[in-house]
Design a protein around this nucleic acid. Structure first.
Lengths: 172, 172
DNA sequence: GCCCAACGACTGCCTGAGCAACTATAGCCA
DNA sequence: TGGCTATAGTTGCTCAGGCAGTCGTTGGGC
């Protein structure tokens, strides 16, 4: 067992991945009970936190882990299920908005408390405030370095992004 | 912006996810240059760190994020590409081992240094040792709680579990 | 005003992965 | 020994999502 795989760097990544996988599984299980996938939940939250409960398709893609075609399809499904609708953009006929419907908002309201409870139970509640703060501080610094701006993966270099003042601290 | 989405719990999960996504994108980009997917790399490392550079299909599935059918298919592809082979299990004719070939080991050797460099560059190297230790400690505690059951138990703090003689200390 | 490059959304095609069904083997128990 | 159940691996089916190509729209240069 003297191999390179005990390298602390590998271990560090392994931990991060295991935590991610573990939490994701919990989230998926809970969301599934509400008839939502993880992606749909993310779409719903991104829209719900935006002015007018809406975003242009492209902006939605930029805020999620999806490509624009992925967004098209997820919005298709969610529109079919009544969770949101498309609305034409008055100022640019190429664009359209995805807007959360009343049903969608209600579904989100039903889902959020349980979601927060699970986060509390399995993540934030596992650590005392100081340890949690240290963890989040570390994550934040790595996040800032790795610059998740290019979530879509179009260009992973993305040296500079436009207005990140918008909601740096608020991003999910 | 007075909505629930600024809840620190949401923010915490958001950070974790952004870090995960950011690192994954870097890894994928680097591995892609070597003609490996993230999953294939994981399979290769899991096997390479196991005794005899081999694991039974089921054990491999348990150690990765894949289902058994997923493992079947990854191993199909990697066998086709010459990175590994199947070997019959002498003691149980239902089982078969996936074994890393010389080509597979070589590919891994070519890939690992760059991989470690990227981890260092974007993750561990972003923090001073103390902050990194705090981060990892927090992650470890959450990991232990969320218990990624599939890959359960490690030397860390694991109270005690049954038979993980397979390769307990080897997990990522 | 006209042209053309850039852009937003959508679609065809393909890959990767999970679930469930299936086959073969193992091990138990009467 | 014969049968029953559990297990290992594979395969059919389905679906989500990415890439690249398409279509309509926009806006800048002339």
């Amino acid at each position: 067992m003297t191999n390179v795989f005990d390298d602390p760097r590998i271990t560090a990544v392994g931990l991060l991945y295991e935590v991610h996988a573990g939490l994701s599984a919990r989230f998926a299980a809970q969301l599934d009970e509400q008839g939502l996938s993880v992606v749909e939940f993310e779409v719903l939250t991104r829209l719900a936190r935006s002015p007018g409960n809406q975003l242009r398709m492209t902006d939605l893609a930029a805020q999620t882990s999806l490509s624009t075609s992925g967004v098209t399809r997820v919005v298709d499904r969610m529109e079919r299920d009544g969770l949101l609708t498309r609305r034409a953009c008055p100022s640019d006929r190429r664009s359209s908005f995805a807007v959360v419907t009343a049903v969608g908002m209600q579904r989100l309201d039903e889902t959020l408390p349980g979601h927060l409870r699970i986060i509390e139970q399995w993540f934030t509640g596992q650590l005392d405030p100081q340890a949690l703060a240290a963890l989040l501080d570390g994550l934040r610094r790595v996040r800032d370095a790795v610059h998740p701006c290019a979530t879509a993966g179009s260009t992973d270099t993305a040296p500079e992004d436009e207005i990140q003042a918008t909601d740096d601290s608020a991003r999910l």
